[in-house]
Each structure stands twice: as C-alpha cells, then as structure tokens.
Design a protein around this nucleic acid. Structure first.
Length: 312
DNA sequence: AATACTTGCAACCGCAACCTT
DNA sequence: AAAGGTTGCGGTTGCAAGTAT
C-alpha cells in the first residue's frame, strides 16, 4: 500500500529532500519544456528526478517558472497585500492571484516576517482590529508616500486592481486616512520621515497644534480640566470619537468647550483621532502615570465603542 | 575573531477538495 | 457510490546569511 499522499513509486525508491541542485532544476525545466506542467506525480516518475510530485510542483511554481518575479516587493505590491489580507485573511493563493509574478509562498513569508514582526513588536495581535487600523492609517500612507516618490510601473499591477478594491487607490483605498485632512496627512508624512511601525517609540512629541483642525495641546486641556495631560487627551479623544461616530456632540465629562478646546466637528474628530492613534508613546510622555500599554488599552476602548456604535 | 542571535526564505508536511477509475 | 490518486492550500520548519555582542 502506498503512503497517504504518495504513490508506490515514492515508497520504492529513495527520495531526495532539501534544497534543489542546479542539475535537478535543469532536469525539471527541460522536462516541463517538453511535456508541459501538471501531472506532477507522473513527471516525478518519468523525469528521472528523485523527488515527489509535490516537491517538483512546488519548485516549479515557486522558483523556476519563468514569470516568477524575484526581488523585493514594491510599495504598491505591499499595499495590495495589506489591503487584500484585510479583506480575505490568510488566503495566500487568492491574494497571489492579484500580484502577477508573486507566489503565495512569497506573500505568506512577507506577511509572517514583516507584518507579523511589526505586530509582535507592538505587542498586538496581528489579526486584531487595532493592528488593522494601524496598518491602514499608518503603514499604508507611508507606502503611498514611497509610491509617490517612485511612481509604480503599470505592468506590476493586475489590470483589475482598481476594480478589485472597488475604488481608485488614491481616493478610497484608505477610508481612515480619507477622514483626515490633507493638512494632517501632510503633517504625518512630512514630520515623521523615518516613521515605521517599529519606530513608534521614537515619534515626535505629542499632538501638533499646527494643524488647522483645532487640535489642542494636552497640557492646555489638562490645565483647563485639572487632569493629567494624558487623562485629558484620553477624555477629549473619547468624547470626540463618540461625536464622530454618533454625528453629534456628546455630553461627557469634557463636553464643554473651554479655551483652547474646540467643539468637536467631523474634521476635528478626525484630526484628534488621526493625531492620537499613532502617537501613543508621545502621549505616554505627556502623562507620568500613563504607559504605552495603557494607551493601547485606551485604543481598544475606542475600538469597542466603534463596534458598539456600528452595532457589531 | 568568535560566538550567539535574528532574519528571510525555500522547502516540507498534513489536510482537504477535487478528479479519475 | 466508493476508493484511490492528484492537486492545491496554509502552517511550519530548517538553514544559510546577516547582524549584534
């Protein structure tokens, strides 16, 4: 009887494992050139390769096939992966179908080595809503910036790219950043040229008061409400976030707009959320009793509220 | 210079769906 | 309809190369 997935042939002969040699590659390429790809077990039997059909298939599809693209993923490919993964999860082969020349294995490796690494460093679950938002609002804009500085080559992208995402990348790809004012996005991009997710702890001090969106300095709010700066920021943020979600001004403890505090508007809410979401460490610096962890917890609260408001 | 640790990636494994007989 | 074979997918592992100590 043969093994579960193999054939009697595989049991009868000693099979090679591990890295492929140049000779094996040549043999496989030559065989496929003559007979075409597919029927992998037959190929394994007839080609003279002492490999399983599975191994031959994998080597061909992931490495030898002529249209397999080598080298680093471009920013636009990375954006596409991030976006499609947020839609489909770990459906690597499905995602790979939309990145010509890239294999599911390569995409999977990218996700595990780069994306999950960032999540680990931030101590967040890579599949959590918090991390997805961080990727959308923070990482993607950075990739966009890279794309802008080196325009993507059209042939790199699947022609169905825009259709696939349901909108044009520039306008609708990042709904969160679309909420943010152009000024604010520019502030993000321009003020943090070295921003990477792993570099959160190095980000510049606290909220910018330079935007036109009415975002105030935490210290101002603290003075106004006799709270520690970080508490004040947290409360203001929650209040404004509520307003953003519900479409009206909330009556929470910080509800009254005092000097230096503007009544929440969609724009100011966006700005507040946009400023704060990524400035955890800066916030931590504002309040002696607030650690990065507690601020992340705060973010989870926003997430919970958001889901609650959306009836999820 | 030597060693330990980390990273990136190719390859393997088990499983499930699909195909063939 | 059932059994065996094949293919494809997602998770995991092993290892070479690079980096830090």
């Amino acid at each position: 009887m043969s093994t579960k997935n193999g054939s009697k042939y595989e049991d009868d002969m000693e099979l090679r494992r591990g890295p492929w040699t140049l000779e094996e590659d040549t043999l496989l390429i030559h065989y496929i050139a003559c007979h075409g790809e597919g029927r992998w077990n037959q190929l394994a039997r007839c080609s003279g390769l002492k490999r399983t059909g599975k191994s031959c298939r994998l080597r061909w599809l992931n490495y030898l096939k002529p249209d397999v693209k080598r080298g680093n993923l471009t920013p636009e490919e990375q954006i596409l992966i991030l976006e499609l993964h947020s839609k489909w999860g770990n459906r690597w082969s499905r995602i790979a179908q939309h990145l010509p020349g890239r294999t599911d294995n390569e995409i999977k490796n990218y996700w595990r080595t780069r994306v999950q690494k960032q999540a680990r460093q931030l101590k967040i679950d890579a599949n959590s809503a918090v991390f997805r938002d961080a990727v959308r609002c923070f990482w993607m804009p950075r990739l966009l910036e890279k794309m802008a500085s080196s325009p993507p080559s059209a042939e790199n992208l699947n022609p169905n790219y825009a259709d696939l995402l349901g909108h044009t990348p520039q306008e609708g790809l990042f709904p969160h950043t679309a909420l943010f004012s152009t000024d604010l996005q520019a502030t993000f991009v321009n003020s943090r040229p070295c921003y990477e997710l792993s570099g959160l702890e190095n980000c510049s001090p606290c909220i910018s008061s330079e935007t036109t969106m009415g975002v105030v300095q935490p210290a101002d709010i603290a003075q106004e409400f006799s709270q520690t700066p970080s508490d004040a920021v947290g409360n203001l943020l929650l209040q404004q976030y509520d307003a953003l979600l519900t479409g009206h001004q909330s009556n929470s403890s910080c509800g009254q707009a005092g000097p230096g505090v503007v009544a929440p508007t969609p724009a100011s809410c966006s700005a507040a959320v946009g400023s704060l979401v990524y400035d955890y460490s800066a916030l931590a610096n504002c309040g002696a009793d607030n650690t990065l962890d507690s601020l992340w917890s705060m973010d989870e609260l926003w997430q919970a509220r958001k889901l609650e408001n959306w009836g999820i």
